[in-house]
Structures are given as structure tokens and as C-alpha cells.
Design a binder for these strands. Structure first.
Ligand code: SF4
Ligand code: SF4
Lengths: 153, 153
DNA sequence: CAATATCGGACTATTTTAGTCCAATATGTT
DNA sequence: AACATATTGGACTAAAATAGTCCGATATTG
């Protein structure tokens, strides 16, 4: 149903938390406790994020993680890229397409346009903009004017 | 990696083929042969599309499928909705969110904005615009200026 | 040296997706 | 009326992606 993986979702939650903490180091267990992400999951995510260069790690006692760059320079597109690979809405959106229908397919071009549109939408949101409070807690219209998500068919 | 399912992909290929055939009926085996989608897969897809009201079926000998509406009135968003359910980039994008982090999550609102942007991008492409081959065979002067994703703000 | 916390990888379980099959039903033709 | 063709609906199996867990190695602090 066209969704990001739960890992990616939780990854952004963790990154937002790190952004709030500024330059202070946070251990994996610290992050897990504060975000309520399961500890092993948080560990795994932080490892991946460190490898991707989005967070920096410090080993040893009193070690931990912190953001590698200012939150305003990290986009949702980068986060998705890091955690689940580049956006590729169809098989033929990747470099090494293995779609057997490609030779006679009539829709690939349009999908690639859509792919780019999604990519632009993701690249347009930075980590500090991601810190956008409540999805639930259906409190009356706050400053978040246009955030309605009508999903029913 | 944020992609539509292969079924959805093949579903659009089939719909584009039906669009090309106009009002003429096509049997499932006809569709399979022309699009090179495996026959059982094509059958399954046509059934789902018929149930969603995107194609109409005629039973019996010489029966088959055809589009229920003109191609220009069918959008990619509808196709995705029909084949894999409404776009819901995160768990909390759905009506019945079951995310256990929701109460303390700081990112849900932003994801819903992104969700809407993706939805808009999909709703902006109609079935006849979808008929666009991937690599070569570029028709002159396309009207394709309309796939912009900047819907937010 | 001892305590703490990351690092790297491998492993299992779960869920989702893909693909297949069969019996029932409807329609046109012989 | 009987037959051949083609959709319909559901259930079923197989395959793949995802989620989550675990453990030994390594680096840093004190
Ligand atoms: S759009 Fe066409 S070429 Fe691209 S993956 Fe789908 S079927 Fe294959
Ligand atoms: S964005 Fe937050 S509330 Fe929404 S699904 Fe992800 S963790 Fe849950």
C-alpha cells in the first residue's frame, strides 16, 4: 500500500530525537527509552544511520550517537535512501532494471516521472521540518492548517 | 524501498493496453498474450480491477473486459488505490492507526504532509498520460508539465 | 584493568506479496 | 437444448521481503 517500512519510520523518529538533543551524545539505550522504540531495533537503526553518515558515533564509556550535520541540511529523501535504498517506484526505475516486460512496456516513462515527483517531495522536507507534532490527539485545528489526511475511498 | 507492488505495476500495464483497445472487448488470455503478463496474474488483476469498477466485464463466449470509463478520467491514484489500497506512507496515515508510538511521536504530522504530496502527484497523472514508453519513442511536445510535487506550503 | 557502549554480522521469526488452482456461473453458438 | 467459451469468487501454496534478536569483537573512559 505504498508505505515506507516501519524501520524507516522509526529511524526518522530517532533522528528527530537526536536533533532535539543537539550536540549531546545519546547512547542507544537512551534513545530507545526516550522514543519507546525497542532497544535492539534502535541499535540496528543507529548502526545503519552511522554507516550512511547521517549520525556520528563515539565509542567507549560515555559514548553514544549524535547528528553528523545540522538538522536543516538533512532531508527526508536522504533518510529514506539510507534506510531502505533509493526511491524506485517501479522495477525499471533502478539502474539495473530486470523487468522482463520492459521491451514492450508502455508505462515506464510515466512511472519515472512520478518517481521523480515523489523524490522531490521527500527532498523538500528537512529534518527540522520533520519535527512536526501530533498526528493523533485529534485536537482542534492547531497551527497545522492543511494537514488533513483524508484516506477513505 | 518505496515501490509499488509488481501487481500494481502490471495492473497499469494492462489498463494502458485496454485503453489502447478502446471499447473492444479483450479476454484475459488476449491481455496476457499482448502484454506478456502471466495469464493467471492477468486474470487475478482483471478481477480486482473489475471489482474496483475500473474495468467492466462481459461474461460468456466472446466476453471479455474493457475500460469502464474514458482513460482521461482514470488517475494513477485510483489505480493504486484499487490494487493495493490507499496510499499510507506511515502507519498513522490510515484511519485506524495502530502505532504504539503515536502518543509521543514527533514526526507524524510531517509524514502526513508528504503523504498528501505523493497522493497529489499520483492523482495528477491520468491513464492516457500513463501511456508513455520508458526509454525511447518520445512523442514530441508532451503536455507533461503537470507532474510537479510541490503541493505543500 | 575493568566497566561501558559501539560495531559488525549472522540468525530466526513474522508478515506481506506473488502466483496457482478449481468449482460455479453466465453468455453466445450450434 | 446442449455445448463451448470466458468471467467470477474464493481458497490455497510458495516465495520473498521485513522485523526483530543475539553474540562476540573492539574502542574509550577512568
Ligand atoms: S513500468 Fe513497465 S518496464 Fe517498468 S517495471 Fe513496470 S512493467 Fe517493467
Ligand atoms: S510517524 Fe510516528 S505515529 Fe506515525 S506511524 Fe510513524 S512512529 Fe507512529
Amino acid at each position: 500500500m505504498l508505505r515506507i517500512s516501519r524501520l524507516t519510520d522509526y529511524g526518522t523518529v530517532i533522528l528527530v530525537y537526536l536533533a532535539q538533543r543537539g550536540d549531546r551524545l545519546c547512547s542507544a539505550s537512551d534513545v530507545a527509552a526516550e522514543t519507546h522504540v525497542a532497544l535492539p531495533t534502535a541499535q540496528k537503526l543507529l548502526k545503519v544511520l552511522a554507516k550512511a553518515g547521517l549520525v556520528e558515533s563515539t565509542r567507549g564509556s560515555e559514548g553514544g550517537y549524535c547528528l553528523a550535520r545540522p538538522p536543516s541540511s538533512i532531508t527526508a529523501a536522504e533518510i529514506v535512501d539510507a534506510l531502505e535504498g533509493p526511491v524506485a517506484i517501479t522495477e525499471c526505475s533502478t539502474e539495473a532494471s530486470q523487468c522482463e516486460l520492459e521491451s514492450m512496456c508502455h508505462t515506464g516513462g510515466a512511472w519515472q516521472r512520478i518517481n521523480q515527483a515523489i523524490r522531490d517531495a521527500l527532498a523538500d522536507v528537512t529534518l527540522d521540518e520533520l519535527d512536526c507534532p501530533p498526528p493523533a490527539a485529534r485536537t482542534p485545528a492547531h497551527k497545522t492548517a492543511g494537514v488533513t489526511a483524508r484516506q477513505q475511498r
